[in-house]
Amino acid sequence: MREISIEGFGGFVGAGGPASHVHQRGRLDWSALSAADQAGLDRLFAEQARVDANLFYRLTRVGAGGTETVDALPDQIPPALLASVQTTLD
């Protein structure tokens, strides 16, 4: 894996909607994550569990095999990755 990106959807703010001016995105090099975090994320991507929640994050990682995406709840996400999220206005 080279890197992982994260985008927030929902919550009170509801960032990421079609016409929204507010976005909540972040990214980290895969190597910046601990081995335990990488293993936890590997499980998330493998499980591909459906998320039906008020707030969720879309994780996308890029590796030699291509791009993978999975939706996750805040407490499933390593704090370091969650902390990379920056809020921006356009």
Partner: peptide
């Protein structure tokens, strides 16, 4: 919750 976290939510 978090550091300068920009949201509020209900988690079930």
């Amino acid at each position: 919750y978090g550091v300068k976290y920009n949201n509020a939510f209900w988690n079930g």
